[in-house]
Nucleic acid binder design. Structure first.
Length: 565
RNA sequence: UGUCCGAUGGUGUAACUGGCAACACGUCUGACUCUGGAUCAGAAGAGUCCAGGUUCGAGCCCUGGUCGGACAACCA
């Protein structure tokens, strides 16, 4: 099965979103000579999730749509939080989604020297100063959103003293937290970010890329905008919470007198029945509520990948949900729709029974095995056919039999006929039970030898078609049935005294043994199948040899149980 | 008595920039079907947060409210 190859930029007649309108307006006005250059700027302090996927698709999509470029840049300005492991996983995820940054892999840490010089420029202009206050003092004098802050007593140091102190900060003369470099803007600004924000802090810690070269590190606000500027990014697409930072970025760029990108903010993605904050996801991992960042229940890209989501389905999802500035919560059913739509077209079918009930076909000769020919994918004629062994004893789904069924039950019941998919029509003749519990243990059927699929008499109408597997040939596999991780649509909305973890779904993972067609044996990790009438499943990396492990990607739509069946 | 942003069916996004609200998901019918899947046909569901104003005409413009979100880490 082909996973994903080329990305189509159909433009599909879809109306332009507000970002595209802004970009086209800029192009019309001749800004940047019509050039479009975007970037995806993650901090390597965690794994990417579906919300990042939205941003990745947006940025790389825009770059492609306007025949421009898109960079990958790690905003790695905080050595104590960032790790190489995250850098690697982020690159893998972006690539897996189908995007290519070419030779434009950058790190904010690549610009540390340049950033330092920018800081010196500000100091020389009297626009930045070294402040000796402690963190708590700075915090206390910053004021509140409603009350102005107080100016630092160090605010009016001479340029020469500031220059000297800043140089000595860099040289490592002071311990962590002793001093910071701050912009000199306006402590009374209604925008908190303009109240003499901190530009540089002292951190004696090794950086994953620059090692011990630096002991002062720029704050995100002093690195991000200028990094975009250095890379000549034309459109800095980011989420809403950075809207308030924009005046600061503009101020910095104006004072330093460098190229000014245009920042456009959009609303981040929220998904129902899950959490999206890195902090909360990290907590789920650390406290063992899930089995790692790539647990198939996680909304991380690696989790979705392991679950069995395809890059195409995620890209299509990003396209479908659109982009705007208002807060939004996308229903998971939208995501599920995207993966069903994709897998329906590309996943080969196979039969697998998850909750087996033994069926003996009394008039079928003992010891005989017939090879049935089954269509691999009715949606794709090129997918071909396969052989499925059929014998006297088969397994069907326990839910596909009812002793005393309601009218609308189209499956097996005493005296009733059903079609066994790709095989014969059978009739239920009798039932065997366990004497004490009275539980049905075996169904006895007879088959009609003239109704084998493909035979002239095979199109006789019967109400239902069942999937099955030959009992002696069945391959036992571990099947992991995943459900939503949380019981409530919005786990972030917590009642008094509760945390999001109180809403975890205790039934988010159920492990069962499945009995599968032997043809599945050659399946490789990552491969996806539709278990007919059941759902889509993906071979997990925990598989080994003949011990296959499957993750349920998503069940098939089921109008029978939904109708109360 | 803060600043900024937002408000359109259950959800999300549109409405050619002022011309009687569309598309997708979801929901519900029906057809078809060797997957109660897929496919096909159809339906219900908003009169655009509220109140004024401008206009022949307002979801789009103006004014004033209301509600929601963001902002007070030496995080990003």
């Amino acid at each position: 099965m082909q996973e994903s190859s080329t990305i189509k930029h159909s433009n599909s007649g879809r109306s332009r979103n507000f970002i595209e309108e802004s970009i086209e307006e800029d192009i019309r006005e001749g800004k940047n000579k019509g050039r479009v250059h975007t970037r995806f700027p993650p901090e390597p302090n965690g794994y990417l999730h579906i919300g990042h996927a939205k941003s990745i698709c947006l940025n790389f999509g825009l770059g492609a749509k306007y025949k421009g470029l898109t960079n990958l840049r790690f905003d790695d300005t905080n050595p104590v939080k960032e790790e190489l492991e995250y850098v690697d996983s982020i690159m893998e995820d972006v690539r897996w989604l189908g995007y290519d940054w070419g030779d434009r892999l950058y790190y904010a840490s690549d610009y540390f020297e340049q950033l330092y010089e920018y800081a010196v420029i500000l100091i020389k202009k009297g626009k930045a100063f070294v402040c000796d206050m402690q963190a708590d003092e700075i915090s206390a004098t910053r004021g509140t959103p409603k009350r102005p802050g107080k100016e630092s007593p160090y605010r009016n140091r001479s340029v020469a003293e500031n220059l000297d102190l800043f140089e000595r900060m860099r040289a490592g003369e002071f311990p962590d937290g002793a001093r910071v470099l701050r912009a000199r803007i306006d402590m009374a600004s209604p925008n908190m970010h303009m109240r003499d924000p901190i530009l540089y802090r002292i951190i004696h810690a090794a950086h994953h890329r620059t090692g011990d070269t630096w002991c002062i590190y720029p704050m995100y606000d002093f690195a991000h905008g200028q990094s975009d500027s250095i890379e000549r990014i034309t459109h800095s697409i980011c989420t809403l919470e950075f809207e308030v930072h924009r005046p600061l970025y503009d101020w910095l760029i104006r004072e330093i007198e460098i190229y000014a990108p245009r920042q456009i903010e959009f609303a981040r993605l929220n998904l129902s029945y899950t959490v999206m904050s890195k902090r909360k996801l990290l907590k789920l991992v650390q406290e063992g509520h899930v089995n790692g960042w790539d647990d198939p229940r996680m909304p991380t890209i690696s989790g979705l990948r392991r679950r069995g989501y395809t890059p195409d389905s995620i890209r299509n999802f990003a396209e479908l949900i659109g982009v705007a500035k208002r807060d939004n919560v996308i229903d998971v059913s939208m995501l599920e729709f995207c993966i069903r739509e994709d897998l329906n077209k590309r996943a080969n079918r196979i039969m697998g029974v998850l909750n087996p009930l033994r069926v003996v076909i009394d008039n079928f000769p003992e010891g005989v095995v017939e090879e049935m020919e089954a269509v691999n994918n009715p949606e794709d004629p090129d997918a071909g056919t396969r052989r499925v062994p059929f014998s006297r004893e088969i397994l069907i789904e326990r839910e596909d039999f009812m002793e005393d069924p309601p009218d609308k039950f189209f499956r097996l019941a005493p005296g009733r006929e059903v079609r066994l998919r790709s095989a014969y029509i059978v009739r239920c003749e009798s039932i065997e039970r366990e004497p004490v519990t009275n539980i049905v243990t075996t169904i006895h059927c007879t088959y009609d030898p003239t109704t084998r699929s493909g035979m002239p008499n095979s199109n006789r109408k019967v109400k239902g078609t069942l999937h099955w597997v030959s009992a002696p040939h069945a391959l036992e596999s571990e099947i992991r049935l995943y459900n939503r991780l949380f019981r409530v649509p919005d786990p972030d909305d917590t009642e008094e005294g509760k945390s999001f973890k109180d809403y975890l779904n205790p039934d988010s993972l159920r492990v069962v043994t499945g009995y599968l067609e032997p043809a599945i044996l050659t399946a490789k990790p990552g491969e996806k199948f539709q278990f007919e009438r059941v759902g889509y499943f993906c071979v997990d990396k925990d598989s080994s040899g003949t011990n296959l492990v499957f993750n349920r990607v998503v069940p098939l739509k089921d109008s029978w149980t939904k109708a109360g069946g």
